[in-house]
Design a protein around this nucleic acid. Structure first.
Length: 453
RNA sequence: GGCCCCGUCGUCCAAUGGUUAGGACAUCAGGUUUUCAACCUGGGAACGGGAGUUCGAUUCUCCCCGGGGCUACCA
């Protein structure tokens, strides 16, 4: 019975899609999938100056990366200009709308005279080049029955007779949206809270047209860590930045779902299938939320650790644009327990593919007096080891601790710095094994040489 | 300015007309430990303020304060 629910995601291609937009897309997608309904993708490109094909492509790319698909579209709103013009003419003919040459200054003057809380009311004109305004009633309220917020009443007398079409006949956003939602049979509009104030206008258009009204749900906005509206200045504000930082799409979906919504039993980690099953638009909260990358990192790490090694390696390979060969696979095997993002994996296993990095601080810290002798002993023990698996290596190095009377860290850290250049790496036995005996010995020799200078 | 929305730990999400107000991230302490993580244990941490309703308000109402959105011939 809910078979006919139709949701829509309608971004405007005036810039990169940021995480607020991505969350709106996700919520629509979850709601559509959870109800057996469908999702329409509509591109709100009626602003010809700011809308670019590049931005459209970027939005599609982000949705594909997030693995949020749609059933219809993308439909260009601009391509529906004919339908818009026809509906506009209807309103003009019926007198529900009228031409008015008033300028912004005229509107201001009107308010100075009638009060700031009084909506502008114009005078119909014959000027064919004048903008078109919708006639708004003077009495009563226009009530938005919002799924999340309940009924929200907007007094009509405070609402301007707003412009629905430019002088050249091209229509404006609030008109186009109302017409399109109606003509596309949209039953559920789920969008950002910044549109709540636009909704009475769209309702007024719908009613003037005698069209059916969708159900509305306005999502609380996302804010940056400073409490201000989320913008580019807040670091990873765009989804592309999230992708480039090495986050998994399924982790991003999980995190985004939790930004404004939660389960009653406090479940935090959820597969997308589970999200579809549990998410309900009416359970979304009404307070704005702050994007917190720390929690995303944690969730991402949890998802990464659960990936089978083959899949893990494939993801890392794709991220690094490398072949998922044995070396990468062995690197992934030793990094998986430690990395929280795909980008971090490289930091941990880079030494397998490149010479040790130069980290003076690391040298100063662990390559002090007496280190050379330790490394020489380690080198000899490793050269003599029966095999070169982690267990063999441990068996070869462990006895040195007692022989040389040193603590584990005193021996292992210099080895770590010798083979990786830094003090941070996966487990030392695993790291040596992954590097291989020959290269490990070479690097330790290099370090010994350097210490002898 | 006008219209509208929002207000539970630092952050996200819960619960409730009567509870020690719960979980997660973060944080702090301890444990584990070859580094860093991970992991385990424990701790600190919230109902913006003021009235009212009520036997009793975090919960209901009003006011204030604070934050936000809209207020374009942008979307």
């Amino acid at each position: 019975m809910s078979q006919d629910l139709r949701f829509r995601f309608a971004p405007s291609p005036t810039g990169a899609l940021h995480i607020g937009g991505a969350r709106t897309a996700l919520y629509n997608w979850l709601a559509a999938h959870g109800s057996g309904g469908s999702l329409v993708l509509r591109i709100e490109d009626t602003d010809r100056e700011r809308s670019t094909p590049e931005n459209v492509e970027q939005i599609l790319e982000v949705l594909r990366w997030l693995e949020l698909d749609w059933d219809e579209g993308p439909i260009s709103q601009a391509s529906r200009a004919e339908q818009h013009a026809a509906r506009l003419q209807e309103l003009l003919d019926s007198g529900a709308a009228y031409r008015d040459p008033a300028t912004a200054d005229d509107v201001k003057a009107y308010k100075r005279e009638h009060g700031a809380d009084r909506g502008y009311r114009g005078t119909p004109s014959d000027d064919p080049g004048a903008a078109v305004r919708l006639r708004v009633p003077d009495d009563g309220d226009t009530v938005v029955e919002d799924t999340i917020r309940g009924p929200v009443a907007f007094p009509n007398r405070s609402q301007d007779d707003f412009v629905i079409a430019r002088g050249d006949g091209s229509v404006l956003y609030n008109f186009a949206v109302a017409v399109d939602d109606a003509e596309m049979g949209i039953t559920d509009v789920v969008r950002g809270d910044d549109h709540l104030s636009n909704t009475p206008k769209q309702l007024l258009v719908l009613r003037a047209l005698g069209a059916s009204e969708p159900r509305y749900a306005h999502l609380p906005l996302l804010h940056g860590p400073d409490g201000k509206k989320l913008s580019k200045r807040h670091g990873a504000a765009s989804v592309e930045e999230l992708r480039d930082a090495g986050y998994l799409p399924e982790a991003v979906r999980n995190y985004l779902a939790l930004l404004g919504w939660g389960t009653t039993d406090d479940t935090t980690l959820m597969s997308t299938e589970e999200l579809v099953k549990r998410f309900r638009i009416e359970d979304v909260g009404s307070a704005s939320a702050v994007f917190d990358e720390q929690k995303l990192r944690w969730i991402n790490g949890r998802f990464m650790r659960e990936l089978p090694l083959g899949e893990y390696t494939a993801r890392v390979a794709a991220f690094l644009d490398r072949e998922p060969d044995d070396r990468l696979r062995s690197g992934c095997a030793i990094a998986q327990e430690k990395a929280q993002t795909l980008a971090e994996v490289w930091r941990l296993i880079r030494f397998l593919f490149e010479p040790p990095v130069d980290d003076p601080k690391a040298w100063r810290k662990v390559m002090g007096e007496g280190t050379r002798e330790l490394l020489e002993a380690a080198r000899d023990a490793l050269a003599a080891a029966d095999g070169f698996e982690p267990l063999d290596i441990e068996a070869a190095l462990e006895p040195l601790l007692e022989q040389l009377e040193v603590k584990p860290g005193r021996l292992y850290q210099p080895i770590r710095v010798a083979i990786t250049g830094t003090t941070v790496s996966p487990g030392i036995f695993e790291s040596l094994a992954a590097l291989g005996r020959e290269e490990s010995l070479n690097r330790i020799d290099d370090a010994i040489r350097r210490l002898s200078e």
